[in-house]
Amino acid sequence: MIHDSKERYGSISKWLHWLMGGLILWQFLKFFDRINDGEHWIGQTLVPWHISIGALLLVLVAVRIFWALGQLKQRPRHDPATAFMVKAGHLALYLGMALLPITGILTMIGNGYGLKVFGVQLVAKGPEIAWAASLGGLHSPLAWITLLLVIGHVGMALLHHFVKRDDVLRRML
C-alpha cells in the first residue's frame, strides 16, 4: 500500500519517516564534536557529511510536507482528547527539521565559507554577511531543542506501544 489510509501510514510515508529519522540521528552525531575537538572516529568519519546530509534533509522535509498534505484526508486520525498536542508536537518537529538546515546554510554563507554539498560547490566562498551569520547563530540552540523534541517523539511512541498498548506505533512500522 503506497498511500496512507485511516488505519495506517502507507509505504511512502513510512519510508520518508524512517529514512529521515536515521539521517537526523546521524546529524545528532555532530554533538560528539564537542568531545576532544572531534578527534575520534565519529568526528572524523561521520561528521564531515553533516552539511551534505543537512541539505538532503531540507529537500526531504519539503518532499515529506507535500506528500503529507496530499495524503491529509486519508491519514490515520488521532485521539480527539490529545489531537491538539499531537499536532503541535509534529508541527514543532517539522519546524525544527526545516529550520536546522536553513540556519546551517545561513551559518556557512554568512561566515563566508560558501556551501559545498556532496562535493558540489553550490555557493562560492565570499565575504561575510552579518545578518546571515547572525541568523545562523540560531543553528546550535535549534539543534538542542530539536534533539529534545525527537526524544519526546520517541518517548511518546514507546509510551503508546508499551504502556497504552494501542496501535499508534504499529501504524508507522
Rank of each mutant, 00 (worst) to 15 (best):
D4L: 06
E7C: 01
Y9C: 00
Y9L: 02
G10A: 04
S11E: 07
I12G: 00
K14G: 06
K14I: 14
W18Y: 13
L19H: 03
M20G: 11
G21R: 04
L23H: 01
L23R: 01
L23C: 04
I24N: 03
L25A: 14
W26M: 12
Q27H: 05
F28H: 08
F32Q: 08
I35R: 06
E39Y: 10
I42S: 04
I42N: 01
I42Y: 01
W49Q: 08
H50V: 06
S52H: 09
I53W: 08
A55Y: 14
L60V: 06
L60W: 05
A68W: 10
L72P: 00
K73V: 06
H78F: 15
H78Q: 14
A81E: 12
M85R: 12
M85N: 09
M85G: 08
G89S: 05
A92G: 03
A92Y: 00
Y94Q: 02
L95Q: 03
L95K: 02
A98L: 15
L99Y: 05
L99E: 05
L100R: 04
P101F: 07
P101W: 04
Y113M: 15
G114P: 01
L115A: 08
L115F: 11
V117H: 07
V117T: 08
V120A: 13
Q121L: 05
V123R: 02
V123E: 05
G126H: 10
P127D: 15
E128M: 14
W131P: 00
A133M: 07
G136W: 08
L138E: 05
H139E: 09
S140Y: 12
P141D: 12
L142I: 14
L142Q: 10
I145N: 00
T146G: 00
L147N: 02
G152D: 01
G152Y: 04
G152K: 01
V154Y: 09
L159W: 15
H160V: 12
H161G: 01
H161K: 13
K164H: 10
R165I: 00
D166E: 06
V168D: 00
L169V: 06
R170W: 12
R171L: 11
M172V: 09
